[in-house]
Design a protein around this nucleic acid. Structure first.
Length: 304
DNA sequence: ACGCCTACCTGCTTGC
DNA sequence: TGCAAGCAGGTAGGCG
Protein backbone atom coordinates (compact mmCIF):
# COMPACT_ATOMS: atom_id res chain seq x y z
CA UNK A 1 0.00 0.00 0.00
CA UNK A 2 2.00 2.88 1.17
CA UNK A 3 4.59 4.14 -1.25
CA UNK A 4 7.18 6.80 -0.69
CA UNK A 5 4.79 9.75 -0.13
CA UNK A 6 2.62 7.82 2.32
CA UNK A 7 5.60 6.51 4.28
CA UNK A 8 7.15 9.97 4.31
CA UNK A 9 3.90 11.39 5.69
CA UNK A 10 3.81 8.80 8.45
CA UNK A 11 7.46 9.44 9.33
CA UNK A 12 6.93 13.19 9.53
CA UNK A 13 3.80 12.77 11.63
CA UNK A 14 5.65 10.48 14.01
CA UNK A 15 8.63 12.77 14.22
CA UNK A 16 6.35 15.47 15.55
CA UNK A 17 4.24 13.16 17.73
CA UNK A 18 6.66 10.73 19.35
CA UNK A 19 10.24 12.02 19.06
CA UNK A 20 11.44 12.06 22.65
CA UNK A 21 8.82 9.57 23.83
CA UNK A 22 9.86 6.58 25.92
CA UNK A 23 8.52 3.09 25.23
CA UNK A 24 7.54 1.40 28.48
CA UNK A 25 6.35 -1.87 27.07
CA UNK A 26 5.20 -3.60 23.92
CA UNK A 27 2.69 -6.31 23.09
CA UNK A 28 3.00 -8.51 20.02
CA UNK A 29 -0.36 -9.82 18.81
CA UNK A 30 0.93 -11.43 15.61
CA UNK A 31 4.35 -13.01 15.99
CA UNK A 32 5.32 -13.00 12.34
CA UNK A 33 5.16 -9.23 12.24
CA UNK A 34 8.46 -9.28 14.11
CA UNK A 35 11.14 -9.82 11.57
CA UNK A 36 12.80 -13.21 11.68
CA UNK A 37 15.05 -14.34 13.34
CA UNK A 38 14.20 -12.09 16.26
CA UNK A 39 11.84 -14.01 18.58
CA UNK A 40 8.94 -11.75 19.59
CA UNK A 41 9.65 -12.13 23.33
CA UNK A 42 13.19 -10.96 22.88
CA UNK A 43 12.02 -8.09 20.74
CA UNK A 44 9.72 -6.93 23.52
CA UNK A 45 12.47 -7.24 26.13
CA UNK A 46 14.85 -5.27 23.96
CA UNK A 47 12.49 -2.46 23.03
CA UNK A 48 11.08 -1.91 26.53
CA UNK A 49 12.69 1.14 28.12
CA UNK A 50 13.96 2.60 24.85
CA UNK A 51 13.40 6.21 23.91
CA UNK A 52 12.56 7.32 20.38
CA UNK A 53 14.98 10.02 19.33
CA UNK A 54 13.72 10.73 15.86
CA UNK A 55 11.76 9.24 12.99
CA UNK A 56 12.83 9.18 9.36
CA UNK A 57 12.26 7.20 6.18
CA UNK A 58 14.35 5.13 3.79
CA UNK A 59 12.63 3.76 0.68
CA UNK A 60 9.20 2.60 1.91
CA UNK A 61 10.37 1.84 5.43
CA UNK A 62 9.80 3.98 8.53
CA UNK A 63 12.89 4.25 10.75
CA UNK A 64 12.52 4.90 14.45
CA UNK A 65 15.94 5.90 15.75
CA UNK A 66 16.40 5.07 19.40
CA UNK A 67 18.49 6.99 21.90
CA UNK A 68 21.17 4.30 22.11
CA UNK A 69 21.74 4.27 18.34
CA UNK A 70 19.60 1.25 17.56
CA UNK A 71 17.00 1.55 14.83
CA UNK A 72 13.54 0.01 14.66
CA UNK A 73 12.41 -0.50 11.06
CA UNK A 74 8.75 -0.70 10.12
CA UNK A 75 8.00 -1.93 6.60
CA UNK A 76 4.30 -1.29 6.07
CA UNK A 77 3.94 -3.36 2.90
CA UNK A 78 0.31 -3.42 1.72
CA UNK A 79 -1.92 -2.45 4.63
CA UNK A 80 0.41 -1.45 7.45
CA UNK A 81 -0.15 1.76 9.39
CA UNK A 82 1.51 3.37 12.40
CA UNK A 83 -1.00 5.28 14.46
CA UNK A 84 -0.57 7.28 17.64
CA UNK A 85 -3.55 6.61 19.91
CA UNK A 86 -4.25 8.89 22.87
CA UNK A 87 -4.75 7.22 26.23
CA UNK A 88 -8.17 5.62 26.47
CA UNK A 89 -8.60 4.95 22.73
CA UNK A 90 -10.56 1.69 22.28
CA UNK A 91 -8.44 -1.28 21.20
CA UNK A 92 -7.96 -1.97 17.50
CA UNK A 93 -8.59 -5.58 16.45
CA UNK A 94 -6.08 -5.14 13.63
CA UNK A 95 -3.28 -3.85 15.84
CA UNK A 96 -0.49 -6.42 15.43
CA UNK A 97 2.03 -4.75 17.72
CA UNK A 98 1.25 -2.14 20.37
CA UNK A 99 3.87 0.06 22.03
CA UNK A 100 2.89 1.60 25.35
CA UNK A 101 4.46 5.01 25.69
CA UNK A 102 5.43 6.42 29.07
CA UNK A 103 2.94 9.27 28.72
CA UNK A 104 -0.02 6.90 28.39
CA UNK A 105 -0.41 7.06 24.63
CA UNK A 106 0.04 4.03 22.42
CA UNK A 107 1.95 3.71 19.18
CA UNK A 108 0.02 1.05 17.30
CA UNK A 109 1.17 -0.97 14.34
CA UNK A 110 -2.04 -1.83 12.52
CA UNK A 111 -1.96 -4.22 9.58
CA UNK A 112 -5.04 -5.95 8.19
CA UNK A 113 -3.20 -8.25 5.80
CA UNK A 114 -0.24 -8.96 8.09
CA UNK A 115 2.38 -8.49 5.35
CA UNK A 116 4.33 -5.80 7.18
CA UNK A 117 7.49 -6.46 9.20
CA UNK A 118 9.15 -4.78 12.16
CA UNK A 119 12.87 -5.19 12.83
CA UNK A 120 15.29 -3.94 15.48
CA UNK A 121 18.88 -3.27 14.50
CA UNK A 122 22.09 -1.90 15.87
CA UNK A 123 22.77 1.40 14.13
CA UNK A 124 25.52 2.34 11.76
CA UNK A 125 26.16 2.79 8.07
CA UNK A 126 22.77 4.16 7.20
CA UNK A 127 21.83 7.24 5.28
CA UNK A 128 18.23 8.08 5.91
CA UNK A 129 16.47 10.95 4.25
CA UNK A 130 14.08 13.72 4.87
CA UNK A 131 12.33 14.18 1.58
CA UNK A 132 10.77 17.56 2.01
CA UNK A 133 11.61 21.21 1.72
CA UNK A 134 15.33 20.98 1.38
CA UNK A 135 15.61 18.56 4.24
CA UNK A 136 19.10 17.17 4.28
CA UNK A 137 20.15 13.60 4.59
CA UNK A 138 21.38 12.77 8.02
CA UNK A 139 23.74 10.16 9.30
CA UNK A 140 22.68 7.79 11.99
CA UNK A 141 25.10 7.69 14.90
CA UNK A 142 27.34 4.68 14.80
CA UNK A 143 25.94 1.94 16.94
CA UNK A 144 28.21 -0.51 18.67
CA UNK A 145 26.55 -3.59 17.25
CA UNK A 146 27.91 -6.28 15.02
CA UNK A 147 25.35 -5.65 12.32
CA UNK A 148 24.80 -2.41 10.57
CA UNK A 149 21.33 -1.17 9.88
CA UNK A 150 22.72 0.13 6.61
CA UNK A 151 22.96 -3.42 5.35
CA UNK A 152 19.18 -3.67 5.41
CA UNK A 153 19.05 -1.18 2.58
CA UNK A 154 22.22 -2.09 0.74
CA UNK A 155 20.21 -3.55 -2.12
CA UNK A 156 18.06 -0.50 -2.62
CA UNK A 157 18.35 1.96 -5.46
CA UNK A 158 18.68 5.73 -5.14
CA UNK A 159 16.19 7.92 -3.31
CA UNK A 160 14.42 9.81 -6.10
CA UNK A 161 13.93 13.00 -4.10
CA UNK A 162 17.53 13.38 -3.06
CA UNK A 163 19.55 16.04 -4.80
CA UNK A 164 22.07 13.42 -5.86
CA UNK A 165 19.40 11.72 -7.98
CA UNK A 166 20.05 13.72 -11.12
CA UNK A 167 18.63 13.28 -14.61
CA UNK A 168 22.12 12.31 -15.73
CA UNK A 169 22.38 9.56 -13.16
CA UNK A 170 18.88 8.35 -14.04
CA UNK A 171 19.75 8.32 -17.74
CA UNK A 172 22.83 6.29 -17.06
CA UNK A 173 20.91 3.70 -15.07
CA UNK A 174 18.09 3.51 -17.61
CA UNK A 175 20.45 3.06 -20.53
CA UNK A 176 21.84 -0.13 -19.07
CA UNK A 177 18.45 -1.83 -18.75
CA UNK A 178 16.12 -3.28 -21.33
CA UNK A 179 13.18 -3.98 -19.02
CA UNK A 180 9.80 -2.33 -19.44
CA UNK A 181 9.55 1.09 -17.81
CA UNK A 182 6.68 0.05 -15.57
CA UNK A 183 8.54 -2.95 -14.19
CA UNK A 184 11.73 -0.97 -13.63
CA UNK A 185 9.99 1.80 -11.73
CA UNK A 186 8.59 -0.84 -9.39
CA UNK A 187 12.01 -2.44 -8.91
CA UNK A 188 13.27 -1.17 -5.55
CA UNK A 189 16.86 -1.99 -6.44
CA UNK A 190 16.56 0.34 -9.42
CA UNK A 191 14.82 3.24 -7.71
CA UNK A 192 13.58 3.29 -4.12
CA UNK A 193 10.10 4.19 -3.01
CA UNK A 194 8.02 4.13 -6.20
CA UNK A 195 5.06 1.75 -6.17
CA UNK A 196 2.13 0.94 -8.41
CA UNK A 197 0.25 4.21 -8.01
CA UNK A 198 3.12 6.62 -8.55
CA UNK A 199 4.68 4.52 -11.32
CA UNK A 200 1.50 4.86 -13.39
CA UNK A 201 1.17 8.54 -12.52
CA UNK A 202 4.76 9.32 -13.44
CA UNK A 203 4.50 7.54 -16.79
CA UNK A 204 1.32 9.43 -17.64
CA UNK A 205 2.89 12.73 -16.67
CA UNK A 206 5.96 11.96 -18.77
CA UNK A 207 3.78 10.75 -21.66
CA UNK A 208 5.59 7.43 -21.84
CA UNK A 209 3.99 4.05 -22.50
CA UNK A 210 4.47 1.59 -19.62
CA UNK A 211 5.76 -1.08 -22.00
CA UNK A 212 8.56 1.06 -23.44
CA UNK A 213 11.95 -0.49 -22.78
CA UNK A 214 14.20 1.63 -20.59
CA UNK A 215 17.07 1.76 -23.04
CA UNK A 216 14.83 3.08 -25.81
CA UNK A 217 14.32 6.51 -24.22
CA UNK A 218 15.72 9.62 -25.81
CA UNK A 219 17.49 12.18 -23.65
CA UNK A 220 14.38 14.36 -23.65
CA UNK A 221 12.20 11.46 -22.58
CA UNK A 222 14.55 10.61 -19.73
CA UNK A 223 14.35 14.21 -18.53
CA UNK A 224 10.57 14.13 -18.69
CA UNK A 225 10.47 10.91 -16.69
CA UNK A 226 12.93 12.23 -14.14
CA UNK A 227 10.85 15.35 -13.60
CA UNK A 228 7.63 13.32 -13.57
CA UNK A 229 8.80 10.81 -10.97
CA UNK A 230 9.95 13.55 -8.64
CA UNK A 231 6.88 15.64 -9.35
CA UNK A 232 4.31 12.97 -8.57
CA UNK A 233 6.12 11.98 -5.39
CA UNK A 234 6.36 15.58 -4.18
CA UNK A 235 2.71 16.16 -4.97
CA UNK A 236 1.82 13.01 -3.07
CA UNK A 237 3.70 14.22 -0.02
CA UNK A 238 2.14 17.68 -0.27
CA UNK A 239 -1.28 16.04 -0.13
CA UNK A 240 -0.34 13.68 2.71
CA UNK A 241 -0.52 10.62 0.50
CA UNK A 242 -3.00 8.73 -1.66
CA UNK A 243 -5.67 6.92 0.34
CA UNK A 244 -7.18 4.34 -1.98
CA UNK A 245 -8.71 2.14 0.66
CA UNK A 246 -6.98 1.95 3.99
CA UNK A 247 -3.95 4.17 4.08
CA UNK A 248 -3.91 6.70 6.92
CA UNK A 249 -1.27 8.96 8.43
CA UNK A 250 -0.07 8.63 12.02
CA UNK A 251 -2.97 10.86 13.00
CA UNK A 252 -5.39 8.27 11.62
CA UNK A 253 -6.57 10.60 8.84
CA UNK A 254 -6.56 9.68 5.13
CA UNK A 255 -4.46 11.64 2.63
CA UNK A 256 -5.97 13.84 -0.06
CA UNK A 257 -3.93 12.76 -3.07
CA UNK A 258 -6.27 10.03 -4.34
CA UNK A 259 -8.58 12.63 -5.92
CA UNK A 260 -5.64 14.12 -7.74
CA UNK A 261 -4.48 10.96 -9.46
CA UNK A 262 -4.58 11.19 -13.24
CA UNK A 263 -4.73 7.53 -14.25
CA UNK A 264 -4.46 5.16 -11.32
CA UNK A 265 -7.80 3.31 -11.02
CA UNK A 266 -9.38 5.65 -13.56
CA UNK A 267 -10.03 2.90 -16.13
CA UNK A 268 -12.58 3.99 -18.76
CA UNK A 269 -12.62 7.55 -17.46
CA UNK A 270 -11.47 10.41 -19.69
CA UNK A 271 -7.82 11.44 -19.75
CA UNK A 272 -7.40 14.88 -18.20
CA UNK A 273 -5.12 15.90 -21.05
CA UNK A 274 -6.85 14.60 -24.15
CA UNK A 275 -10.19 13.11 -23.14
CA UNK A 276 -9.44 9.63 -24.38
CA UNK A 277 -10.54 6.72 -22.16
CA UNK A 278 -7.90 5.50 -19.73
CA UNK A 279 -6.98 1.86 -20.31
CA UNK A 280 -5.99 -0.85 -17.88
CA UNK A 281 -3.52 -3.57 -18.77
CA UNK A 282 -1.46 -5.98 -16.70
CA UNK A 283 2.32 -5.56 -16.67
CA UNK A 284 4.43 -7.84 -14.53
CA UNK A 285 1.28 -9.04 -12.77
CA UNK A 286 0.48 -5.51 -11.66
CA UNK A 287 -2.49 -3.55 -12.94
CA UNK A 288 -1.32 -0.64 -15.03
CA UNK A 289 -3.28 2.41 -16.13
CA UNK A 290 -2.42 4.71 -19.00
CA UNK A 291 -3.82 6.92 -21.74
CA UNK A 292 -3.47 5.21 -25.12
CA UNK A 293 -3.29 8.55 -26.92
CA UNK A 294 -0.92 10.50 -24.70
CA UNK A 295 1.30 7.53 -24.00
CA UNK A 296 2.19 6.11 -27.36
CA UNK A 297 2.56 2.39 -27.85
CA UNK A 298 6.17 1.32 -28.34
CA UNK A 299 6.81 0.40 -31.97
CA UNK A 300 6.69 -3.37 -32.23
CA UNK A 301 10.09 -4.45 -33.42
CA UNK A 302 8.99 -6.11 -36.65
CA UNK A 303 11.98 -8.34 -36.97
CA UNK A 304 12.24 -9.79 -40.39
C1' DA B 1 19.02 -9.70 -16.38
C1' DC B 2 14.48 -10.79 -16.78
C1' DG B 3 9.97 -12.61 -16.55
C1' DC B 4 6.80 -15.47 -14.53
C1' DC B 5 4.87 -18.01 -10.65
C1' DT B 6 3.67 -18.83 -5.81
C1' DA B 7 3.35 -17.20 -1.07
C1' DC B 8 2.12 -14.38 2.43
C1' DC B 9 -3.14 -12.52 4.47
C1' DT B 10 -7.80 -10.38 4.87
C1' DG B 11 -11.61 -7.74 3.29
C1' DC B 12 -14.25 -5.64 -0.16
C1' DT B 13 -16.56 -5.65 -4.68
C1' DT B 14 -18.63 -7.88 -8.52
C1' DG B 15 -21.29 -11.09 -10.95
C1' DC B 16 -24.30 -14.91 -11.21
C1' DT C 1 -29.54 -13.08 -0.08
C1' DG C 2 -25.68 -16.22 -0.81
C1' DC C 3 -21.55 -17.60 -2.56
C1' DA C 4 -17.44 -17.80 -5.29
C1' DA C 5 -14.16 -15.42 -7.84
C1' DG C 6 -11.38 -11.50 -8.51
C1' DC C 7 -9.05 -7.65 -6.82
C1' DA C 8 -5.84 -4.79 -3.69
C1' DG C 9 -0.83 0.28 -2.46
C1' DG C 10 4.48 -4.90 -1.52
C1' DT C 11 8.12 -8.02 -1.65
C1' DA C 12 10.67 -12.53 -1.13
C1' DG C 13 12.01 -16.77 -3.10
C1' DG C 14 12.16 -20.20 -6.79
C1' DC C 15 12.60 -21.59 -11.60
C1' DG C 16 13.85 -21.25 -16.39
Amino acid sequence: MPELPEVETVARDLERAVAGAAINDATVHWDRTIRHPQPPERFVAEIAGATIRRVTRRAKTVLLHLDDGRVMTVALRMTGALIVAPAGTPPDPYARVVFDLADGRQLRYRDVRKFGRIGLWPGGGLRSVGAGRGARSRRVAEGGGRYRIGEVFSGHGPEPLQRSFTAERFAERLSRRSAKLKSLLLDQSFIAGVGNIYADEALWRARLHPLRSADSLTEREVRRLHRAVRGVLRQGIANRGSSISDYVGADGEPGANAERLAVYRRTEQPCYRCGRRIERIVVGQRSTHFCPRCQREPVASAAT
